[in-house]
């Protein structure tokens, strides 16, 4: 359920005097004026909604609208895996340090394990499954061709990372590839093959 029950002191605006008194080395009056003005125009409404307990939201996942039920603490990873049967993103580290749960949010690679589902309404969520299908993405094909996977548990996260990296750097050199894909961990040691797979995608122009 969604509630809007915020109580507060209203919008008192900002005290210009306080600002000046505390101004530091780079404080500039001109800067301050524009900011205070902007702040004063904001937020005259009743106050923001507060979400407590279970709530139903709609997420845009791989181009489709999906209704899911979440609590504020539910992570995107949990929703994908337990409600949408999208288990490509993996729970490897709880804090994103493995890259195992990499998905793209509005085209950018992020860790689904550290994103709250409730915060992603209206965002375009893309998971590794969108790169599969009857005509797999060039990165998926290159991973297979270069045997850039062993146990495969880190692989979906790595595939997403390579896809995101090459989307941004389609002409990446080998040195850039080696420098740019360090957010993911593989335990089986497939890095050498992943480098070759990424190089192949660059050469193939996809």
């Amino acid at each position: 359920m969604t509630e809007s029950t915020i109580k507060g002191p209203g919008d008192p605006g900002f005290s210009r005097r306080d600002f000046l008194r505390g101004s530091g080395a780079v404080a500039a009056a001109t800067a301050l004026q524009t900011h205070a003005a902007a702040a004063n125009q904001e937020g005259q409404a009743a106050g923001p909604a507060i979400v407590r307990g279970e709530t139903t939201i709609t997420l845009q996942v791989n181009g489709e609208s999906k209704k899911v039920t979440v609590e504020p603490r539910t992570t995107l990873l949990e929703v994908l895996r337990t409600q949408l049967d999208l288990t490509g993103a993996k729970p490897i580290s709880h804090d994103g340090s493995s890259g195992g749960s990499t998905v793209m949010i509005d085209g950018k690679p992020m860790s689904a394990s550290t994103l709250l589902a409730v915060a992603l309404v209206g965002k375009k969520i893309q998971t590794v499954e969108s790169l599969g299908g009857p005509k797999p993405d060039a990165v998926v094909k290159a991973f297979v061709e270069h045997d850039a996977l062993q146990c495969g548990f880190c692989t979906p996260g790595f595939v997403m990372a390579v896809r995101a990296f090459l989307d941004k750097h389609p002409q990446a050199t080998e040195a850039e590839i080696r420098g740019g894909l360090n957010g993911n961990i593989c335990r089986c040691g497939t890095y050498a093959n992943i480098i070759q797979a990424a190089i192949a995608v660059v050469k193939g122009g996809k």
Partner: peptide, 13 residues
């Protein structure tokens, strides 16, 4: 190529 490669690389495995 390994026979389960696409399945693994696209998250279906």
């Amino acid at each position: 190529n390994r026979i389960d490669g696409v399945e693994k690389a696209s998250g279906r495995a």
